[in-house]
Design a protein around this nucleic acid. Structure first.
Lengths: 145, 145
DNA sequence: AAACAGCCTGTACCTACTACAGGGTCAAGA
DNA sequence: TCTTGACCCTGTAGTAGGTACAGGCTGTTT
């Protein structure tokens, strides 16, 4: 199949397929006489594997690791478990940070009771107070970041 | 004050300060005879404002909008409320997506009972099954993404 | 013959910075 | 006075994971 069909069947863009090839993630296929890439179902499976990993938010280096582990089946899979555990931990931290951020934004939002003018807008006022080092409603206690 | 002190007092890097100036977010300060930037407290407040907005995950275009709204105090603050509401909604969606991702990773992780070899590793097996279009434990129902 | 879709390579762009390279400036110590 | 080291300057390139062209072939249809 040609690149367009492969892209469509894997749900990504043609440019992305070529990008993965350049990055060494997807094996380069044979070429037809006209220079067009000629993919097989094998490539589709490879590409789906990559896309699936990406859906699980793994970075390309991680995908590369997983792909290389596939061919070395004598190694222990501790490495894989460790990789997944790291991802899980990271996701947890992200969720926590976003919860906090959501609260801060909500606090900020609640300070404004709409329909007033910017001159009176407590949101901007708050942001400005924060900038001047004073208390704001979204970051009540000074952040040690 | 010189750029190093400004950066330190605002908690960001010297390069970031110059970057904001290039981007038109931070006003360009006067220069000393030697060409060094000479900042005032006014610039510190500006920079703190930017950093505070960034802590709230606003993009630079949003920060630019807020800064321009500060000087047009006759406009309604609906625009600001709308901006913040958009952020809050976005954060909520992100949290939801991350929750789902965490579950998927955990499911994947649970399929591997450690200490086995990669050849038997169910994680890789699962990812491969998914790539072949069959059911995997992390994405049980085909994803319409 | 011409139009249009699809393919090719190569390069630039996106975010929000970060990290140099290569050079100038300034204050303190030997 | 010389030197060392910290700081400053500009300009450019790199980061992740693609996306979006430009400029040019190829293949099919009309």
């Amino acid at each position: 199949m040609k690149i367009g069909e492969l892209a469509q069947r894997s749900g990504c863009k043609v440019e992305t397929v070529r990008f993965y090839e350049r990055e060494g993630l997807l094996e380069a296929p044979e070429r037809n006489d006209n220079g067009y890439r000629n993919y097989s179902d094998y490539h589709l499976v490879q590409l789906n594997f990559i896309r699936h990993c990406r859906l699980l938010e793994m970075g390309l280096p991680d995908v590369r690791i997983l792909r290389s582990l596939q061919s070395k089946s004598e190694l222990a899979c501790d490495e894989i478990n460790h990789l997944i555990d790291g991802k899980i931990e990271h996701v947890k931290q992200q969720i926590e940070a976003l919860h906090l951020l959501g609260q801060q934004l909500q606090l900020l939002r609640d300070t404004c009771n709409s329909a007033t003018s910017v001159g009176e807008c407590k949101i901007l006022r708050n942001l400005k107070l924060a900038a001047e080092g004073r208390d704001c409603s979204c970051h009540p206690h000074s952040e040690a970041d």
